[in-house]
Structure formats: structure tokens, C-alpha cells
Write a protein that binds this DNA or RNA. Sequence first.
DNA 1: CCCCCGTGCATTTTT
DNA 2: TGCACGGGGG
Length: 681
Amino acid sequence: MQNFNINQKKAVEFSGKHLLVLAGAGTGKTKTIIGRASYLIDRGTDAGKIQILTFTKRAANEIVERVKSSISSSTTANLRGATFHSWCSQLITKFPNLFGASSFTVIDPDDQIGAMKIICGNYVKEYKAVRLKPQQLIDIYSFARNTKKSLTETLRSKVFKGKTDNDTNEEILQIKPYIEILLKAYQNKKMQSRYLDYDDLLLVVANRLQKDVQARDILAAHYEHILIDEMQDTNPLQWDLIKPFISMSCLFCVGDDAQSIYSFRGADFKNVHLFSERVPGSEVQVLDKNYRSTQYILDVSNWLLQTSPIDYNKQLISARELGEKPELINVESQWEEANYISERILGNFTEGNKTFSDHLILSRSQYYTKPLQAVFIQKKIPYVTYGGRKFMESAHIKDVVSLLRVVNNPYDEIAWIRFLTFWEGIGEIRASKFVKDIISCLHHDNLADQLPHIIGGQDGSRLGDLFSAVLDKQGDVRAAVKMAYEEMSLNLAYKYRKDWNEKRKADFPVLEILAGNYASLGEFISEGVLENSKQLNGTPVLESSKLTTEDHKDHVIISTVHSAKGLEADTCFVLNVSPKVYPSAWNLDDNDEIEEDRRVLYVALTRAKNELIITRDTSSINAFHNTINDTGEDKEITSSYFLEELPMSLVHQKNVQKHNSRGADIERPNDIDLSMGMDFN
DNA sequence: CCCCCGTGCATTTTT
DNA sequence: TGCACGGGGG
């Protein structure tokens, strides 16, 4: 077994029932959870009775893989790691008589919004009255269910920023009935189409376990130990899911309140503090020695937390050397930032003896990394992105999957619309009419027979044949995918003619291979949408360990901070740490949101092992200072930019001047040097 | 009436 | 990148 320090060892070999491990950044959180699983298996626990729960598929896979490689025997074969969502999805499939949901379709957020759009089209009066976009309505619905808050409370915090004045109350009262109508219509649509959205997966399981003691006992008997990563990110709904296991299973939860960055999904960092209260007889183990970063990097991170009004009571002490001071780089544009970073990376690669994978680039948002990706492609720096569009969410894949979906679940209205409008000459209006007829036909007739008549004409016989052909291949998922792609490829080429490139085409063989891993269409569709993916130079690549094509290549990682939890790298760039970004301009009037943004930055800073490079935009710094001078209210405003009062002794600051054009790599001297030719000695 | 395509726009964070 | 919008064409 690996070498653990005293506290890690206490956690790994804990002999009580429930344990909360409070572990600061870089203190060996993942190592401890892996050590715990290995220890339990070593001591004879059946690996199949250990469930590891995480928030990302990547974290789950990594933990399971590392446990497996730490124990040589085959006793780990049954060890399972999953996200909360995929775990629930598996439970629903595995115990159909417990949950009563069969032949359902798991819909992703895109489809949720699609469904809500249909609703808004049907309820124009209500939709106009609420003045919220379908996206926002879905967010409200999801937030309310995740936090178990009432619609009124949810509206107050999501739409009205927590305001409690009379005008706000009035307005809430006014729009609430309309929103209720829209949300109820959405729920009905889900039932009618046999959809489960992501929240439903958790709710179906949680509700059943809460109501039915017998179901709870049956299920809990399958899980002796539940190991939960990133406990600070669990929300009330996820807590409902865990709670039923307290009496029979042992909980081992790992978390850090200072890294809680999911309040927008209903998580509350105070949850970790409540653990001892909510889980009677539980114990707490603190890990505070940081093995990841040098002390200078931790100094900046510690400073950031200290300037918060919240007392996190956290000072990370490095077990390593002082190292190099973090660098604060001021750039004049996003292109320079991208150029500067790519030059640093290429320098480290050619002269610094570092690999591309020693570099991690962190951004607040997806969107912001676009120019950087463009420069990387131009300079041929290999990279992958984390947190990008998922493989199964890309448009051309969804087109093909829509056919599989309607075969699997003919009530799947969104898939029907996508499948029907895929063909030339069929638009949304005709498609919705067809769908109506299709659904009503399902009650009394055989759809495969009726489909040609419903659609009519040439399209009718063509699509009818296609539907029947895939229906025949239902038992062989891979063959069904192949068939669907072959029949649709001509139209795919037409639909995406502008960018129907090799990369897109190459996705379909991948889809086939992926399909081969599932026993039924239904499993493929519901598990497949939850399957995470990453992108290699802009193209989605499956992360599944079954596909190893590009996996071992050396590449830089570009990630959002949210997707980077648990990651670490020798050199870490934190992009655009400018005013209005940290904290975000959206959040300036909400203290809780400001503090969450602070934690986001904290997570970013603590990823670096040896080199931390923070970039920020010169012009927005200047604009920020001008506002302070204009208003004179510096107190409020300075608190709204985290780095404003950063002691310069903690970093090395440097200005990077203009490159002469976008993405060009011609070096220009930083300034004319007027001191030349003079020797002051 | 319905479909298609060009243009202009704004874009937090995730399962 | 994906969207809402408007005009041209079937």
C-alpha cells in the first residue's frame, strides 16, 4: 500500500461507520478515496458492494482505474464508480420492478429546452406574459427541484436576485400562475413522451427510497460502502438520495468547503458543515498538508481566501519547497494572451524539458477559450478540451440517434421532430402534424404499417421503410447504428455540406463502436447521453476506456475551472483574471455569488504544482481604475475585483505588448530603448 | 401557407 | 456556435 501521512492513514483505515474527510486542495483527497477503496477490498469487502460516487464520469473512471492498478488480484473486477446520475440510471434499469420505469428515454438539456419550446409554442399567451426564455424556464424548474425550494422562492433567487421588496413580491405573484402552467405542461409532456430528464433520474430513485422502506432495504443490501467525492457539491436532492443508505451502509465522504462552486445547481457549501448533525455518530478527519503546490503558489491562494468575509479557516501549508513566485501577466488582447501562452508552452516543450501534458489552461467559461484554440491549431500545439460539447450532443450525431430514439420509444416527440425535419421539404410545422398523428396511432395501430400513410407520398414510403429496417435490427445496437447512418449519410452530407469534413465523418464509426458496448437500444440511449467526452483539437473524442485511439498522446489540457476539479499540472495558466470576470459582472450585486466566484478562482489557482501563470486584460484593468476614480466609492468597487489588493510581493508582474497582427508570430521589441549607448558607471 | 437560407447577434459555470 | 428574424421562393 502507498505511503500515507498520519491523517490520511486514519481516514483510509477508519473503523467506525460514517466518516467525513475535510480535505483542502492538494492534500491527497483522491489518493485517500482510492486508498480507502483498496483498503476495504484488501480487508475482504466484496468490491461489488462498494459504490464510488462522483460528479463527473472522468473522476469516476480515474478512481476505479487507479484502485484496480493498486491491487494486482482480480478482486477489484466488480468495483463500480459512477456519477450520481448514471448510478441512478443504472438502478432504474437494473430494478425495473422497484422503480416502475421502463422504455423511457433520458433527455439532455438541449432536449429539455426543445420540449419547453414546444410548450411555449402551445401556450403563447402565458409565454409572452412571463417574459422568460425556454432556457430560463428549464433552469427555474431544475433549480427548484434540486434545492427543494418553492416556485416563489426559486423565482425570487433566480429571476429577482433575492430581492424582497413589495414590487418584487407583486411581480412574482403576477407571473407565478403563468409559469406554473408552463411547467406543468412540461411535466405532462415528459410523461406523455416517457422522458426522464437528468433531475428525474435522481428524483425517481430518491422518492422511491424515501417512501418505501422495503425498497430501501433491498437496495441498501447491495451497498456496504458508499464513497462520495466532492461532497461540498451535493445539493438537497442528492442528499435525499444518500440519506436512505445511512442506516445500512457506511458513508465515506470527501470534500472541501472552499472548493464549492456549484451553487447554481443547488449545492450549498455549508452542507459539509452539517454532515455531523445529519449523520448521527459520524466522525470527521481533516487533511491539511498540501503535497501538490510550492509554497509561493499556496501563498497567493491563501491570500485570496483570507480576503473573503467568509471564514474558511484554511491555511494550506506546502510539504514542498518555496518554489517560484506566480506570474501575473498583463496582456492587451485575447490574441496576445493566446500568443504569449503558446510561446511559453512551446518554450517549455523545446527547452524546458516538459511535455504538453504538463500544461493545464483554465478558463471561467467555454466561450473564452475559442481564440486560444485557434492559435493552438495554427501553431500545431496538440490539446484537448474538458467541459466542451459532448460527443452525443453534437448535431450530426443527434440526427442519427434520433432515428434510434423513435424506434426505441415511439412516444419520443423531440426525436420525431428532429428525425422528420432532417429530411428536405419537411419543416417544423408539417413535422408536428405528423407527430400528432403518430402518437394517436400508437394507441390502436401498428406504427410501422401506418407510418407511410401518415407522412404520405414518396417521403412516406421512404421513411416508413427506414423505420421498419431499423426496427428489425433492434436487438443488435451496433447494426442498428450502422443501418441508420448508411441510410442517412447522403442527407447528412447535404445538411452539413459547409463543414462535412473528415472529422465529422469519422464520428460515425466511433458511434458504431460505442453502440457495440450496449445490450439494447434503450440502454445505449439512456447511458449514452450521460457518457462524458472530451475534444481533441476541436473534435469530440470519446473518453470511454474502451476506445484508446488518441488517448495516450501528449497534449495540453484546456478546461473550464468547473471541469478541472481534481486535475493538477506542473504548469498552470489561469486565463483572464480581470475585473468583471473574477467576480463576474453578472454577480456584482449578490454577495453569495461573489464568494462563489472567489472559490472558482481558488480552485483554479490551487491546480498548479510548480508554475502558476495568471493572465489579465490591461484595458479592463484601466477601465476599472477609471470607474473607481469617477465614482469615488472605491470601497464597494474594489471589493468587486479580487486581485485589486493583491500584494505585489506575492507575484512577479509583467506586461506583454502588442503583437502586430492577429495570431501572427512576429516578435517586436517591447519598446524603443532610449537608454542605449549610455554607461552610467 | 410553409420551407429555406442569409444576416446579425450575444454567449457563465454541469449532470 | 447557435439563435431569432426577415425576405425570397415553392
